[in-house]
Amino acid sequence: MFTMESNAGKEEIAGLCNAIKQMGLQARRVNGEHYITIHPIGDEEGVNLENLASMPGVKSFKAVQGRYKIIARENHEEYAGNQNVMPITIGSENPVTLGNGELIIIAGPCAVQTYDQTYEVAMAAKEAGAQILRGGTLKPRSSAHSNMGALEERTEILIQVGKDVGMPVMTEVLDQDHVSYLNDKVDAMWTGARRAVSDPLYRHVGSKSKVPVLIKNNIYFTNVGDWLASAEYVAKEGNTDIALIYRGELGEASSNRDGKFNSKAILFANKESVCPIIVDPSHSAGRTWMVESLIYSSVALPGVKGLMIEVIPEGAEPGDIETDYQQALRPSEFGPIVQRAKEMYAVVHAEK
């Protein structure tokens, strides 16, 4: 891995990347807060990369090993030995930076249903302090007979509401065709919680996605390394604008609403990687009455830079909501909780 000088120019960066490619390798650029790093990708056997350390603009070279080379904290000079993360920016018209010191709130319905319903939730969430609108447009369901949604119609609703309220939008990506469809429409996409670390979608979203990618932990996982390895697959293929979403674990429970919230997984992920972490307290809790407590405990953890919270209209009844009614907050609950969470975050993470 090469760390470039802080004042390295485009020609110097391009020169190093070209030299790496001439050795038969690929070069992945990662933009840190203060330094750019270049990561050679491919079979390095018989290749002496250290010879390139004297090229113009190169600050240092480090031979790296391990399962996740690109996102590993120890491989980034400016992040090694601290708990800071590599910021990513979501959106272009109303950009939001995740990881720059402010708690980012991502809020919206679990599933996009109608324009009016989504607009009501988005406006209430924004007024309460949310910066990004979330909404599922094609939902993976545990039952083959449940409504997964109508992709094109619901995506257009999400996009239009985002424009009308002035918020970046994000949704879940389910397969390779979904990536291609969403690429020029949404500001970020996340992968779901039922994927194995070797899922081909991670490679595809890494090579084809044009927006930041958020990686949810597998609901059945017991190894944080698999979660980070999934992110490494994305980074290796070219997209290094990555965040991690912790959404709880099923563990031994028979129901998604009876899983567990593992703070140690979040601590370990931050210790090992430079990716910003978002906590999804709605899915972690599975029940509305638990969400508030998980929010407050989450904002105190190092590496947590955002929350993804499900919100429904104030007067919604169970029959009005397709999915996750049991774990969503209403605007009257959401507003005060977000305000307290941001106050707590500012105190806990104030620079010493």
Rank of each mutant, 00 (worst) to 15 (best):
L52Y: 06
R340G: 05
I215C: 08
P109I: 06
Q160G: 02
Q327V: 01
R28Q: 12
N82A: 02
V197D: 03
L250K: 08
R287W: 14
S146N: 11
E50G: 05
H145T: 13
A14T: 08
W190P: 00
L98M: 06
A196G: 03
E152K: 06
L201D: 03
V279N: 04
P302W: 13
G32N: 11
P331M: 14
M344L: 15
S284Q: 05
G166A: 07
D184M: 12
L329D: 01
K260T: 09
G149C: 07
D184Y: 12
E93W: 11
A14F: 12
D187L: 07
V64P: 00
P109F: 12
H349L: 02
P95G: 10
E249G: 01
M308T: 06
K139L: 03
N256E: 11
E78T: 00
Y79S: 01
I219M: 15
L16F: 09
V299S: 06
R141S: 00
S207A: 15
S282C: 03
M308G: 01
A196F: 14
D199R: 02
L182Q: 02
S254P: 00
I106A: 06
L98H: 05
N84A: 10
V173D: 05
N48S: 10
I70F: 11
A231Y: 08
Y325N: 02
P87C: 05
